[in-house]
Design a protein around this nucleic acid. Structure first.
Length: 293
DNA sequence: TTCCAGGGGTAGA
DNA sequence: TCTACCCATGGA
């Protein structure tokens, strides 16, 4: 089955793909040569389908492999619209940074949409897997979680990853098993998170509610096991809220070089350097052109 | 071998 | 609110 989903302009498929590292994490498979993003997706019915997404004239062209009914088709359209922030209006951001040379490229490149997973649960887990680890390790841990707990695409096929696991199979496992998979001290955090989601203690979908103030959403994120200031800021950014900056070791070094002449700085200095961008702080930092002076 | 990563939790001030 | 310290694992 083929679908086309329209995007609010300006929209560039590749800008979303390259927005951050998510397209390299299972069950996403990005093929730069063909320009196709593949993803194995489990629907709420439990059915697992294979999606292939490409840029189209007005948005995204979707190929679905696997039978879906009308309701599942609607679910897929909504999930894809969420993953690519197709309804996001970035014009206020572009206007706010129009006079900043180091952000001159953002409108031209249609920057500002971050590739998201189809559920907040998956994004929370993935952000947790980026903490205190190198990117190669993040990719490995996510792949191991998908291989161990994910639901397979029934129609088979070589090299097609399983769908990202729902919280249930992880909630049923033991901490020792997660440790054996290499998650280290993240193991109890992931286990508590999965069990809390299954029990209803944590309502992750409620974090998408844009009528809630950002501070409230941030507090809810910080209350999750294994989610601290950095992870909460990163997740807020993925949720379309840009007031907070996720300060990691990379931010410390690039802001030190770009704003403080290379002298050692702390988180405060990073926040101060981008304070002027207000509610677009995270966007300004993320797309800052460090090569321009 | 040592250091540390796209940090978080906790205790103590 | 801020700091010091510990935490598991694998890459460099």
């Amino acid at each position: 089955m083929n679908l086309e989903i329209r995007a609010k302009r300006p929209f560039k498929f590749h800008s979303v793909i390259s927005s951050h590292g998510w397209s390299a994490l299972a069950p996403f498979v990005w093929n730069a040569e063909t320009g196709a993003l593949q993803r194995t997706e489990m629907l709420t019915s439990g059915r697992v389908v294979l999606l292939t997404l490409r840029e189209s004239k007005n948005g995204i062209a979707v190929t679905v492999r696997g039978r879906v009914n009308q309701r599942e088709r609607q679910e897929l359209m909504e999930k894809i619209a969420w993953m690519f922030s197709l309804d996001l209006d970035l014009n206020e951001f572009y206007a706010a940074v129009a006079n900043e040379p180091r952000l001159a490229h953002v409108q031209r490149e249609a920057h500002g949409r971050f590739l998201r997973s189809s559920t907040v649960w998956e994004d929370v887990v993935k952000v947790m897997m980026t903490t205190n680890i190198q990117w190669s390790g993040t990719k490995r841990l996510v792949r191991v979680l998908v291989e161990t707990f994910g639901a397979p695409y029934q129609n088979g096929g070589d090299g097609i990853p399983d769908a990202f696991p729902s919280p249930e199979p992880i909630a049923r496992t033991r901490e020792s098993r997660l440790r054996k998979l290499g998650l280290g001290y993240r193991s109890p955090y992931l286990l508590q998170l999965a069990r809390g989601v299954v029990s209803g203690k944590y309502d992750l979908d409620a974090l998408k509610d844009f009528t809630r103030p950002t501070d409230e959403v941030r507090k809810a994120l910080l209350a999750l096991p294994g989610i601290g200031p950095y992870a909460a800021a990163t997740l807020l950014m993925l949720l379309g809220r840009y007031e907070f900056l996720g300060v990691d070791t990379e931010a410390l070094s690039s802001v030190s070089r770009g704003f403080y002449g290379g002298k050692p700085i702390g988180e405060k200095e990073v926040q101060a350097a981008f304070a002027r961008w207000g509610k677009f702080k995270a966007l300004a930092y993320w797309f800052w052109d460090w090569d321009k002076s």
